[in-house]
Amino acid sequence: QTVQFNGLEYHFPNPEEAEKFAKKVAKELGGEVRVKDGRWQID
């Protein structure tokens, strides 16, 4: 599972970890999490 933001990609072994990370980062950055092409993106 991949999380993308600021032009970087973070890879996680399972979707739960990816989701948790994506939501944490979005909260800290005040961004929005969305899934695109099977990847988590933070904008």
Rank of each mutant, 00 (worst) to 15 (best):
Q1N: 14
Q1R: 13
Q1T: 14
T2H: 05
T2S: 08
T2A: 06
V3W: 00
V3T: 01
V3Y: 00
V3R: 00
V3D: 00
Q4M: 14
Q4I: 15
Q4A: 13
F5L: 10
F5T: 02
F5W: 12
N6W: 07
N6L: 11
N6E: 08
N6C: 15
G7K: 04
G7A: 02
G7W: 03
G7L: 01
L8C: 15
L8P: 01
L8D: 08
L8I: 14
L8F: 13
E9Q: 08
E9Y: 09
E9I: 14
E9L: 13
Y10H: 05
Y10K: 05
Y10Q: 04
H11N: 08
H11Q: 09
H11S: 07
H11K: 07
H11Y: 12
F12V: 00
F12A: 00
F12R: 00
P13Q: 11
P13E: 13
P13T: 12
N14W: 03
P15Q: 10
P15D: 07
P15A: 14
P15S: 12
P15C: 15
E16L: 09
E16F: 08
E16M: 09
E17Q: 08
E17L: 09
E17I: 05
A18H: 00
A18N: 01
A18K: 02
A18V: 00
E19N: 03
E19R: 06
E19Y: 08
K20P: 00
F21C: 15
F21R: 01
F21P: 02
K23Q: 11
K23G: 05
K24S: 11
K24F: 07
K24M: 12
K24G: 09
K24C: 15
V25P: 00
V25D: 00
V25Q: 04
A26F: 04
A26G: 05
K27C: 15
K27W: 08
E28S: 10
E28D: 10
E28Y: 12
E28R: 13
E28N: 08
E28W: 13
L29M: 10
L29C: 15
L29W: 11
G30E: 06
G31M: 14
G31E: 06
V33P: 08
V33L: 11
V33D: 02
R34P: 02
R34K: 12
V35A: 07
V35L: 14
V35M: 14
K36Q: 11
K36M: 06
K36P: 03
K36C: 13
K36A: 10
D37F: 00
D37V: 00
D37Q: 01
G38N: 09
G38F: 00
G38S: 05
G38T: 02
G38R: 02
R39F: 13
R39I: 15
R39L: 10
R39T: 09
R39Q: 11
W40L: 10
W40Q: 04
Q41G: 05
Q41I: 15
Q41N: 06
Q41D: 09
Q41M: 12
I42D: 04
I42V: 11
I42P: 04
D43I: 15
D43Q: 11
D43V: 15
